[in-house]
Nucleic acid binder design. Structure first.
Lengths: 379, 379
DNA sequence: TGCACTTTCGCAACAGCGTTGCGAAAGTGG
DNA sequence: CCACTTTCGCAACGCTGTTGCGAAAGTGCA
């Protein structure tokens, strides 16, 4: 893990927002591409020639790149394939222990921290009750302690790349400053990333819980690197995370994905946000009435709006409320989408329950650190 | 314009959808970056050192790149700046006549064709009445004739890069096949791109009219290369085009941007699309009643949904209906967005009328060919 | 068992990219 | 007129991925 150059992301940003491409950018791009294929290949590994085919690079280039990766300890040989009449292909695999990342999920009533290896697999996990409203200092203290014990107990902890932190409510992903965590105004303006980074002496990345969940699904959910989907989380509230071309779309002020307060009923019933007719309010009301089918229909309408606007190729549902009756929600949402697709003359967008019901927020938070290694930085 | 290598876009696509980076990709990327800055600099030009600062490249690299561009005839020296104590900077500018692109707008009742130079400036323009419902062959015939006369009359026509064609209704941008142009079912499945490409013996790109308009605004509207905005077109219908990070977002099946049939009133009044409560239906109904303020409010609600979901940094309005009372629409939409931003505790997203009221669809269509030269290919 | 054949993979030379070092060109200011 | 500053190009360099060729390691047939 001892790369020499490319420290903090090739600081050649232009004033206009676009970046020139240095030679090192090319190298790290192709390295990331190869690493990503090694990761998706899993423990069975993948041969050099296959890597060459799938990247479009020449076998020689792949040999060079994989040689560097092996020097760095990121890749290793793992046996051989059966020969097809010549020298058998040597299989390469990612070395999961070459690096680790921490993922922390600060939920309203619970803290979950995980230590993941390079493949994203959970090496160690801790959970503890938490009161998000207990104030920033208290929560930070808790998080630091839990993370510390996790790393200490992790046995032979390899290099820890950093910590990803996911929590509810709007925040600025770039600066790592919280805006106003829903229901906990005392967090307003708290520079969580910098405080935690200093306390942990590690790089820290913060993001919305729904974005973390979506990232986890993008990387681990078997979705290819080019897929686009919307993850809709229906729990105590209704939120969303957008993955476009394999990377999380956060928007200019990193506030994208606000799905719950989409207005689908002009001058409808009031919502907690102060507006009227938000999907969240309507869905929650329907659930309160026990009318799950109606909740699914309303959710489907909002999802249909999203699909029409962005043309994603998948809708994933998750969250505690969905977990109560997953089939009903999937069927309800899918029905609305199918009807709209039929009218538009196109194929319907598939709807599925997110693997793990989207509960892997902490794992997704760890991916905030891991994903960039595999070329999944911001789109 | 005689580039040697990089023919049809570096055909090293991976099965997973991501591309490896050859050496030539780096070159063309940086060339495009410089070219884009030359374009935005306009006739006044820009010095090499300024190019170096803005791209992050070294002055030497810029010298090499601009030397190539001058060899190819794309750039030229244009005088000197005042000295600041040393050798004065030589100013470079884009040579607009080094290449041209055709833009064709097939509207329901009118055909507009333009010939643009590299800067996107219109060199020649023709308009003619058109009946989009007259059938594919008739329309193609008309388009070919108009384009032919345009090129012939264009005087010393430089190299024509190709033709961009914009028309209403859903279509597949990638394959260039129409789905069902709204109201003209006979177009269903017509391979417009290939037919026109054969007839014109030119590369042809087709896209929705709203996407073309949005692209024109993204390139010519003074918006920086990194901006994201939504262009909402309210004319006979209501549509939209999304620009994210300076490039048009088209989605997996190139159907993105369907804004008009966003449902904002569950079980509301029926819409022509067969659904109920679509923005388009509500806005049109309000306009028919003469209640423009209400139309603006409804439009603002839908725009607010879009802004919350994508976090763009600008909303542009255009179209004939907006042009009737632009101030009313801007104020109405902005009011809704400001109110929502206030509740969320963030800054309001600015709303403006698109320059030219978004009527420059043909110019935008020409940009379908020009934009890739400046690195504005699909994001 | 031996030999021809196929396939994989690494070494060496190569072309192309941006970078560094240095010098020429072209001004300003004393 | 000369020192100084700034711009810009030439040459050498380090770094990419690429090409050519040969070694390694199997299979299959005589």
């Amino acid at each position: 893990m001892n790369r020499t150059e490319d420290g903090a992301g090739d600081a050649g940003a232009t004033r206009a927002g676009r970046t020139s491409m240095r030679l090192g950018a090319l190298r790290s791009h192709n390295s990331a591409l190869v690493l990503d294929l090694l990761r998706t290949a899993g423990p069975e590994g993948i041969s050099r020639l296959e890597l060459a085919e799938r990247t479009g690079l020449t076998p020689q280039a792949v040999s060079k790149i994989t040689a560097r990766l092996r020097e760095d300890g990121l890749a290793a040989e793992a046996g051989h394939r059966a020969s097809t009449g010549g020298k058998p292909r040597t299989v390469l695999r990612l070395v999961p222990e070459a690096g680790h990342a921490l993922g922390v999920h600060l939920d309203r009533d619970e803290l979950t921290a995980v230590l993941c290896d390079l493949t994203g697999a959970v090496v160690a996990r801790r959970s503890a009750p938490l009161d998000l409203g207990a104030g920033a200092e208290t929560v930070v203290e808790r998080a630091v302690r839990e993370v510390g014990e996790l790393v200490a107990g992790g046995g032979r902890a390899g290099v820890v790349l950093g910590a990803g932190v996911a929590l509810p409510g709007p925040l600025d992903h770039r600066s790592g400053v919280l805006h106003r965590v829903t229901g906990f105004p005392e967090w307003n303006g708290f520079p969580l990333r910098d405080v935690l980074a200093r306390r942990l002496s590690l790089p820290v990345v913060v993001d919305k819980d729904t974005n973390a969940a979506a990232l986890g699904l993008a990387v681990g959910g078997g979705a290819g690197s080019g897929t686009s989907f919307a993850y809709l989380h229906f729990g105590a509230g209704l939120g969303g995370g957008l993955v476009i071309d394999g990377t999380v779309h956060r928007g200019t002020r990193t506030g994208a994905g606000e799905f719950g307060h989409q207005v689908v009923q002009l001058d409808g019933p009031p919502c907690g946000c102060g507006n009227r007719g938000c999907v969240e309010a309507l869905c929650l009301a329907a659930v309160a009435r026990g009318d799950v089918a109606e909740a699914a229909r309303v959710l489907g309408t909002a999802a249909g709006n999203l699909v029409a606007l962005l043309d994603v190729d998948l809708v994933l549902l998750g969250g505690r409320t969905v977990a109560v009756a997953p089939e009903t929600y999937v069927r309800g949402v899918a029905a609305v989408l199918a009807e709209r697709a039929r009218r538009a003359g196109s194929d319907a967008v598939p709807v599925r329950v997110a693997s793990g019901a989207g509960q892997g927020v902490a794992e997704g938070a760890a991916q905030l650190l891991l994903a960039p290694l595999f070329g999944r930085a911001e789109g």
